[in-house]
């Protein structure tokens, strides 16, 4: 059965840790909010976007979801504001403070 990581916090007793410290399941890091690391975030100007998807592979944080061949809004709960995507967009559809 998949590990319920909600039961695994820094106050968890030794009896309740997973055996061998394994985690059954995947992608549990989504519960960890790295979006708090930065206050500066990219902005997506949808009307300028031509859905070329060139911004998708450059994101180190998998914060540009793609569905049915189209990108969606930024996942700002996890985006660390590195600004790489801003420079990858040929159409000026992504802007961010401090990045030209």
């Amino acid at each position: 059965m998949a590990t319920d990581i909600k039961n695994l916090g820094v106050k968890t007793k030794w009896q309740d840790l997973t055996e061998g410290m394994i985690i059954v399941g995947s992608g549990t890091s989504k519960d960890f909010n790295t979006g708090e690391w930065s206050s500066v975030k990219p902005e997506f100007i949808e009307e300028k976007c031509k859905q070329c998807l060139l911004c998708v592979p450059v994101c180190p944080d998998s914060c540009i979801p793609v569905k049915d061949m189209k990108r969606g809004a930024f996942d700002l709960e996890h985006c660390k504001g590195c600004g790489i995507c801003v420079k990858s967009c040929p159409f000026g559809a992504i802007t961010m403070e401090g990045v030209k």
């Binding site: 998708v56 592979p57 180190p60 998998s62 061949m69």
Partner: peptide, 29 residues
């Protein structure tokens, strides 16, 4: 390219690599 981008993501967000890390860009792709 677009079909490649349309594949399911296999590295979830919420990891703690630095902002702008090249390592996770490599992994994702």
């Amino acid at each position: 390219f677009k079909e490649t981008m349309n594949k399911p993501e296999r590295l979830a967000p919420g990891h703690r690599m630095c902002a702008g890390c090249g390592g996770t860009i490599a992994v994702r792709n």
